[in-house]
Amino acid sequence: MSRFILKRLWQAFLAALGALTILFFVQRLTGDPTLLLVPEGATAEDIATLRASLGFDQPLYIQYLQYIKGLGTFDLGMSYVQGVPVWDILMSRLPYTLWLTAGAMLLSIGAGLPIGVLMALKRGTILERLLQGVVFTGQSMPTFFSGILMILLFAVHLQWLPSSGSDSVTSMLMPSVALGLLTLATFARVARTAVLDELGKDYVRTARAKGVPMKRIIWRHLARNSAIPVITVAALEISHLLAGAVIVETLFAWPGLGQVAVQAIEARDFPIVQAVVLFGAVASVACNLIADLLYGLVDPRIRHTGGAQ
């Protein structure tokens, strides 16, 4: 098991390094950001000084090596624009994104799984059709679209919820729903398929032949057996939620990492963009590792063979 985890970590390390390397060079292909940073009316000399202080006068590979060396000592660099350590910016914004993602995840699991299970159990009934409608809607609406619809309805028209900001729990409600809707639909679909698959299996018939009531069959037998695909999807979906946060945070003026990333891209504040991408890579690696550990907890066969297939 631990060898398996080490292998996974190594693969993740290479993937993250690859992503950062590509990002590093592509960003610099877009040109030299010094001109954006100098005040209006700066002299050529001023510009040259600033460029030298930011290191842009160095050859590209030197800049790259210095960046990697910095990473090795957990130094993410300084923001070009704000002149403060990127680490501080990241840490001040991270909680907002975590709250938002957690809210969306809670909603999509809390509602998506029961919806999927119900759809499987009530196959062919009107209830299934109704839920199918909910799932289809969630699945077919892009985040920005459902977000705008919600703002129009709940903030502008009904005036129940604030359209932006981060000062109360109610202001978190709409962004979480907007962010989680797509994931909710995904969870519902996966849960439905998993439960339907399991319902047809022999061990369910055995449980019924033992006189186990359906409710208990679902909780004691089905839940665990259908957990593997749900865990897989959950790990994937966290990455999707983090990506979706970029849109939702912009839409609802939510001061999280996504908003920071968009602003940094516009301002060509490279170190911040790089740091956010690095965070995304680390988060997705962590999620996958946790998923692998959970597989082992759920399924003794995986525990024994030492890894998921």
Binding site: D202, Y203, T206, A209, R220, N225, D299, P300, R301
Partner: peptide, 14 residues
Amino acid sequence: MIFQEPFTSLNPLM
């Protein structure tokens, strides 16, 4: 009742 397939008739995770 006892079924034909002993292996799949038991819950693999219990």
